[in-house]
Amino acid sequence: MVLNRVNLEIELGKTVAIVGPSGVGKSVLLKLIMGILIPDEGEILIGGKNITEARSEAAKNEIRGLLGVLFQSAALFDSLTVYENVAFPLTERAGIGRRRSAKEVHQEVTKMLESLSLTEYATNYPEEISIGIRKRVGMARSLITEPKVLLFDEPNTGLDPLVGQEVYDLIRLCRERFGYTGVVISHELPEVFQVSDRVAMLLNGSFIADGTPEELLKSSNSAVQQFLNGRIDGPIKIQ
């Protein structure tokens, strides 16, 4: 069992970072929120709607319409240009959200590309742009449907410090501009604190700490301190 007794409530408009060592189930938790995995027990409510009770893909899709996700590798579609990737959720998801004409789609995508400084890359394919720009395109694609909740899976893993900081700046900027509720999955400490109102640490399948970044820094829990300080010796065993 990867996760057990996980209980977390996220206030509207706030951003929570879920942190913990590799292999503790952070990404599993994200997939549970997206309805890609189904828990054996328990419930996950998004805007009051229970995704764990949604049996059909159509019912799940209705709830997924409230979500946006920025994947670790941005998960852009290789065969589509930057413009087409950003337009994708507006043109391809059927029966969810407002139906838009081609002209409206073009206007919205153009506006989104402009607001994230991506206009010059509109005709490029993902393989032709840097990872930092790909993340920005992924962000634009997530935001185009005006999601209520935005999920970030390891947003700056594998990036150099400058690009990593650029991604965090982008997350902060977009939150100010679009006002979503955020869930950031990360093991990058303390960098992730700059985009978090609250931090919850996952270990052995459940949360061992939950509070503001300042509270976590002052935590007396030895596992939290070991993780924060990157010590090898301590209760957390390296897997």
């Binding site: 890609i36 319409g65 998960a75 994708f88 959720p89």
Partner: peptide, 22 residues
């Protein structure tokens, strides 16, 4: 397979697009 391992299929599902249909 590459779409699967690079999370593109998960991305489709997260955007409420059914990968089976698409």
């Amino acid at each position: 397979g590459i779409m699967r391992i690079t999370e593109q299929i998960d991305a489709l599902r997260s955007m409420a697009v059914d990968p089976v249909r698409y």
